[in-house]
Design a protein around this nucleic acid. Structure first.
Ligand SMILES: [Mn+2]
Ligand SMILES: [Mn+2]
Ligand SMILES: [Zn+2]
Ligand SMILES: [Zn+2]
Lengths: 148, 148
DNA sequence: TTCTTAAAAGATAATAGTTATTATTTATTA
DNA sequence: TAATAAATAATAACTATTATCTTTTAAGAA
């Protein structure tokens, strides 16, 4: 996991470079995404920020997440049920392990993937640009709570 | 690729076993999915069937695809842009290679994956149930048409 | 074949997550 | 402090999918 402070600084610098205003709402959203503890959803970010910004609008969260996506500073994980989760700490393709019971998402250490990309390119003739690897299952905590 | 006739027979047998009616529309949808040439979308299935069934309703396609999903006889591939594609020929998790230009989806031969699942289970403590592996890129045909 | 009926089709309304719009507010700079 | 371009907040619009409801039909019985 990248250092959240570093990631935050990188994102703020991007805003500066593009002469975008550093509003408190925008910076707060960036801070949450730079940490990205547990890959938050837009709704979760919104709920968290409502405590600090009483007038916070859901549209503002969507707008800024979209903006950061366009900069390549946040990775969007969209799921079949329509929900989206975000990783602003590691904004590049990497595998994820998702608990189908509690929704927890973790980043596993898994290296054997660039080989796969090359293999696929060779076999299909595609020029591979990105990928998405998701493992779905039940996390340790949910396995234990099932046994009760 | 499984034999489309075999897949069709398996699906029809499932309908029979569950005492579901074998309507012409339902059977036509099953036939297209059993072939699954290019992983069709609901819209594509609908457009194709309108030629034969002038009164065909989009809702009927959705309803039957949903039904086949619930039987485990079709694999749904949902994408970030909201589009869904279906594989009724191989209705179990397997990797896909997707062209971001023309939307082509192919099934690559790629075996080194069950190992990965075990690796991830071991490392994270998750009980892994299913997965989704997508490679995004540009197909050979689109690479060539770009050069023009 | 005709009758009966539960299920499916067709048409359309509802839903939900996201994006667009617009008036108001605000960060930035001079 | 004042000017202004951009962001916010509130809400409308959008779109793919699902639900609802009426009409039609497949399938089994007589
Ligand atoms: Mn991640
Ligand atoms: Mn496939
Ligand atoms: Zn869990
Ligand atoms: Zn292509």
């Amino acid at each position: 996991m990248a250092n959240p402070q570093d990631r935050y600084a990188i994102i703020v610098e991007k805003f500066r470079k593009k002469s975008l205003k550093l509003t408190p709402q925008r910076l707060a959203i960036a801070k949450i995404l730079a940490l990205s503890k547990g890959h938050p959803s837009v709704e979760e970010i919104f709920e968290q920020l409502k405590k600090t910004f009483s007038t916070m609008s859901l549209a503002t969260v969507y707008r800024n997440v979209l903006l950061l996506k366009s900069f390549g500073e946040v990775l969007e994980l969209s799921f079949p049920d329509g929900s989206n989760r975000y990783d602003g700490n590691r904004p590049y393709p990497h595998p994820h392990v998702i608990c189908i019971k509690c929704g927890a998402i973790v980043d596993p250490a898994l290296d054997a993937l660039k080989d796969l990309t090359h293999l696929v390119a060779k076999e299909t003739g595609f020029q591979i640009l990105t990928h998405r690897f998701d493992f779905f299952g039940i996390c340790r905590r949910c396995q234990n709570s099932d046994k009760k």
